[in-house]
Write a protein that binds this DNA or RNA. Structure first.
Lengths: 129, 129, 129, 129
DNA sequence: GTGGTCTAGACCACA
DNA sequence: GTGGTCTAGACCACG
């Protein structure tokens, strides 16, 4: 696990983003057990309370299910995960597009910029698909 | 002026975003005088101190120049403003693309989503150009 | 902590000068925790908001790192601190020399004056090393 | 006249510094007439009120004498000017030395830095003597 | 009137 | 307890 945190938003939310990404891109599969709170805390170098909050948040969203004495598991319900993926996408896309439009960028400029950014990401070696 | 604030980030930063948008999309021109701190405070419905912080932040970025006893002015240097626009764009685009890739979206999916979002924005009546 | 403020510049900047001096002369070491905002406020006899501003300024300069809920720490990067020391020195020296030259002092006069001032400082008991 | 102003201190004080320098380095001689307030205001690109304040300040110090209907003149008293020069020097030197010592610089470092700065100033073409 | 600083006091999220 | 934001209200120097 390699996560880095910035000051733009709370660590517990950044950690949540991280797990959601792992789930959405298939690194963590439905039904899979998440590392324990303590384990994650050590690996991420943050306070266990913070991790606890992340897990609680994910459980509230229905993405994660805590089983007494066994640990926390990603939901086995594929539909929920699929919806999570769609919700995240729509949210990000909308925010991004509105921002760009407000800053006076035309449709063509926006599309071009995205293309360029995708290409650059490829060059940096980030994988998707 | 119609600005609304949410809880996602500090008011003074949202206000900065607002002014930067006005500058980037040409609503506010290079060299133009900004409304006074107090004036903006009244219009935005926030405390003058908060506006002051926004103005200070913009001055630190070199976008705004404060002249004692005269007011605050957008820099006359078009190059700086052009760079602001580019920086904002690159920042938003990169963040967005990286997020999407990390969540496992393919290039095609990303482009398609952006197209859809642009179309929806048009329908909501947001203009760009 | 013994800090006194004059009217030559804002308190929050004088407080910054004070901390930078402590860091440059080794009184405060890299990685060390600074007193909390409130604590410093009490000791310096100023409002917490003013101290907050000082800390924010130092963080923007990269000299201080604020960790949520834990406190503010001097950067562990010795190179940054070394550069701070050099920057401060160069800035002061250059300003001073330019002023003196503009006022028509010769190199010899300047050097002599500095020597005298150093001697006087010693007599007043100010230490350096 | 080429004066530039920064935001570090009031314009009227920076303008005063400028005139004092001209007087101390012999560009403006004892008894010489200063340009009128309006004239200076135009050349320096500042408000006449600001220049007025500068002149008033210099008159208060005894360096400048205003003669009704004739204008403002530098004092003919060489002793006053000599003292002005000494006062300025001592003030700058002392402030500078104290700052450097507080930042942990040794006598040798300080002297060396001054030598370097003098050399650099020469290279930039600033004249003294 | 303008920007800028400061205080007092409150509130919040985070660890 | 820690950093950070915000309000309310005041004051100041500058132009």
């Amino acid at each position: 696990m390699k996560v880095t945190f910035d000051n733009s938003k709370p660590i517990y939310l950044q950690l949540m983003d991280y797990f959601y990404q792992q789930i959405c891109n298939g690194t963590i599969n439905p039904g899979q057990k998440l590392p324990s709170v303590r384990e994650t805390a050590v690996e991420a170098g943050v306070n266990p309370n913070t991790v606890q909050r992340t897990y609680a948040e994910m459980e509230r969203s229905g993405i994660v299910v805590a089983k007494r004495g066994q640990g926390s598991f990603v939901t086995e319900d594929g539909a929920i995960i699929k919806q999570l993926r769609e919700t995240i996408a729509e949210q990000y896309v909308t925010t991004f597009v509105v921002y760009m439009i407000n800053n006076g960028f035309s449709d063509e400029e926006i599309m071009a910029q995205v293309q360029i950014a995708l290409k650059k990401a490829k060059e940096r070696g980030e994988e998707n698909g």
